[in-house]
Design a protein around this nucleic acid. Structure first.
Lengths: 360, 360
DNA sequence: GCAAAAATTTGAATCGATCCAACGAAAGTG
DNA sequence: CACTTTCGTTGGATCGATTCAAATTTTTGC
């Protein structure tokens, strides 16, 4: 069977067919790209010749150079490629991007890499018309690398301030407020915050100065929203422990150990991501504490898993799919302008939040 | 800020820089692609000029045409793009493909489309070195379309016989045997099969003739495996109902209604996919039946969700990630040969299977 | 039967790079 | 000092198509 595929006889080109059929390149090209303008007799002859010679149709590589547009957008991240298929947040986002691309017939190229050098190369050489950047991690570097390419791009989850880049995000302050208000209204007064990072390579309890010096403004804004609202309900935020996690299991568990080691453990936890919140539920359950009987938890993000865990997670839901859709469209309909969009979030009350235990 | 991005002043080309720097385009090219062979003084001058003129680096579109290789593989399916991020089977498969691509620095382009015409166009014009085909649905058409492109491709979940295409699959007969034997050894003697499709556009109870006439050999093989093993344990397979589903909720539920309507309902269900099996668990639980107390269920595929459902699903696990890895590698290291690989499956016993109720 | 209009076809130019044979200059050699 | 090497640079050829103004053929109108 291997013989079906001949060794490497340089593939047939459009020009070969043109010559064989006795027409010019121009006509041969038209046969494939605008068949209606070539006389039927000629069209059939050329097509037959193409068939006979095993022509695979116009090579997109050639067309591309002439056309200029690839008709595909690149989605880039510093995480490994599998991130796009594993991470719940990324998956929902990709669904939104997919939707916009499906609608216009555009393709999606996934761009990522093991190390920085390869990432740079992959971004430099990706065949795309623009990029959507997942800045979950290493955002600044990713932006810098992409900027060099001088193609349109839009940053998601940017995390830091930079007015020169297009970005789509949510109103973190308002979202955090929603979460805090919900818990306050349920009667909670003793809180702890499990936060995302304020700066790179740090975990642990966070001081006020560290918050001041935050690199990641998204984290800072969420905390500001929490504290703002807690203040309005008379909670002394100076006493609220804020533990910085890396948004994964180990550091979150360490944070919980720390938070619950004190004499007056919190009755409510404000988690800056659903991932953190779900680890917290697991940790508390393992230790025999009831959620929300003993401790209430409110997450942030609104990933689908949140609805499936036990108890289902109360959370501040981002319009993730919509963010993806808009990001893709921003690239597809690029008009040369830098745009920033801030979408609203929504509190989704499920079963991980309730009144504090009566004793407290 | 919008002024940062100038209107549309045709982008700077390598040739522009070469002229501006007073070198040949050959040398300018070398400055970027083989900097070590150009004299430092010249190199710096050209680089400085490039910087000054806002050159974005060699355009991959141009390089591509010359190089011939895109360094990316296309993953195609007839499902919408979001399928890659939603479907559990596809996700694990993509993780395997991602792994192989990450390792060699290759990119992934997702190819799909709403309708057949667009799909054909997208396959024709995808900038890739080869394709991995998800033949879950519309396999024959997908293969036909891809074949025209005359690039290497490998079919996954091919479902039908075609010796001229490379494919990777599992030993369906052996896998089905494993499932049937497991249930027989637990003592079950009354079975029902919830199957995948034998041919397009059909659901419902399947007759022996329809099995004979199966288009999809994967389905046929699994059934053969089940029946083979059941026979060895003295079960009269003529009495085992086989209900053909579309591998989704509605038809599976219809199948369950049919199967459990009879006088002697089965104590064990052989499901040809985990999707079907999980719907079955849900259906039985809703009706107050215990799994596995009243009815045991064994799935097929080994998707991660199976471990998470309640009760965790006993299933015949395919090495999904490995299939993905191999598929990607087959394209990346294409040598012109048609290859077929059949991998082994493994029975994963979890909690959805147990002895039949004592009364039966 | 002939001019004008319409329909096709042609072939050179272009897209943006890389490759490579040939060449010039500088350095090394006997 | 002539003669090889070595090193860097040059510029034409090439990758595989599309485009478009001009040339050519066919149709139409009278």
């Amino acid at each position: 069977m291997a013989s079906l595929v001949t060794g490497n006889p340089r593939p047939v080109r459009l020009a070969d067919i043109a010559k064989a059929a006795g027409v010019s390149h121009g006509t041969a090209s038209n046969v494939f790209s605008r068949p209606e303008i070539v006389r039927e007799e000629v069209r059939e002859r050329v097509k037959a010749m193409a068939e006979a010679m095993g022509y695979a149709g116009p090579d997109p590589k050639g067309r591309l150079l002439r056309a200029g547009k690839v008709n595909a957008i690149g989605v880039a991240t510093t995480e490994p490629l599998s991130y796009f298929f594993d991470d719940p947040f990324a998956r929902v986002m990709m669904a939104g991007i997919s939707e916009a691309c499906d609608a216009t017939g555009a393709g999606i190229a996934l761009v990522s890499a093991g190390n920085d050098e390869k990432l740079a190369w992959n971004i430099q050489s990706a065949l795309v018309d623009g990029f959507v950047l997942f800045c979950i991690d290493g955002g600044p570097r990713l932006v810098e690398l992409t900027r060099e390419r001088k193609l349109p791009f839009v940053a998601l989850e940017l995390g830091f301030e930079d007015d020169t880049v297009s970005a789509i995000g949510v109103d973190n302050v308002a979202g955090a407020r929603l979460a805090a208000r919900h818990l306050c209204e349920l009667g909670h007064r003793r809180f702890a915050v499990l936060s995302l990072q304020f700066a790179d390579d740090r975990t642990g309890l966070v001081s006020a100065e560290q918050v001041e010096a935050a690199v990641y403004t998204g984290t800072r804004d969420r905390l500001a929203g929490y504290f703002d609202e807690l203040c309005r309900f008379g909670v002394d935020t100076a006493k609220v422990p804020v533990y910085e996690t890396e948004n994964e299991e180990a550091s979150t568990r360490a944070g919980l150990e720390t938070i619950f080691a004190g004499a007056e453990p919190p009755t409510a936890i404000l988690a800056m991501s659903d991932r953190i919140a779900m680890v917290a539920i697991e940790w508390l359950t393992e230790r025999g504490m009831q959620v929300p009987g003993d401790v209430s938890i409110v997450g942030f993000d609104g990933v689908p898993d949140g609805a499936l865990c036990d108890p289902p997670l109360t959370t501040v839901a981002q319009p993730i799919t919509e963010i993806g859709r808009r990001a893709a469209r921003m690239i597809l309909d690029f008009d040369g302008a830098v745009r920033r969009e801030t979408l609203d979030v929504e509190l989704v009350v499920r079963a991980s939040s309730g009144p504090p235990p009566s004793g407290s």
